[in-house]
Design a protein around this nucleic acid. Structure first.
Lengths: 96, 96
DNA sequence: TTGACATATTACAATATTGTAATATAATAA
DNA sequence: TTATTATATTACAATATTGTAATATGTCAA
């Protein structure tokens, strides 16, 4: 099967979405903890509410995370297996 | 070992470098073929010489590729194991 | 030397991304 | 209802990325 130019656009978009320290941190955190609400991310990362929300929006658009509302909080989790693999491989412990 | 905010900057930079269709394509091509010179990439991707060269510069700065001059050609290859893992995991055949 | 080829760099305009501040929406409590 | 808390969206200025065109550098052959 030939890979065409367009086949690189989706994967590139995912990498681009992960390619920001705050979004990578959010994603890694969600992978470790399973799920997490927005206020927690705010405190944890010391980034403004609006900024966090906009980063989450990019992660959502790239198909990396999904949010579930519970009461007046929204819990996010990582839904992309590719993203999980990528992030895990970047932060794997170096087992000698 | 605590992971601090700064620990996300380097990995994020690598992902960002890979997060462009042309650079992802170059990187995947180099992984498949082992090595390749710039003119070949130009023809293959139908992207201008200058653009290819600037993309290669970003990949170099991110520590993803390295170039070796041979005569008047420069051959590139992927030197980052992380990048190899990431790209391979994105394009793995779905073995059912 | 000069010319041709391969690659890199620079300059710059167009576009995209980022963060902050302000505002909007949604759910709940009083 | 109104107030409060949690999250999302919008507007906008600052900055970064992109591609094209032009120029520079490096290597080889004549």
């Amino acid at each position: 099967m030939e890979i065409s130019r367009k086949d690189y656009e989706q994967p590139a978009e995912m990498l681009k979405a992960l390619g920001h320290p705050v979004r990578l941190c959010i994603t890694k955190g969600l992978i470790s903890k399973g799920r997490c609400n927005v206020s927690y991310m705010e405190e944890c990362l010391e980034v403004s509410q609006s900024a966090i929300s906009q980063h989450l929006s990019k992660l959502r658009n790239a198909g990396i995370v999904k949010g579930y509302r519970t009461g007046n909080e929204v819990y996010y989790e990582v839904i992309s297996e590719h993203a999980k693999k990528i992030v895990n491989s970047l932060f794997e412990e170096e087992t000698i």
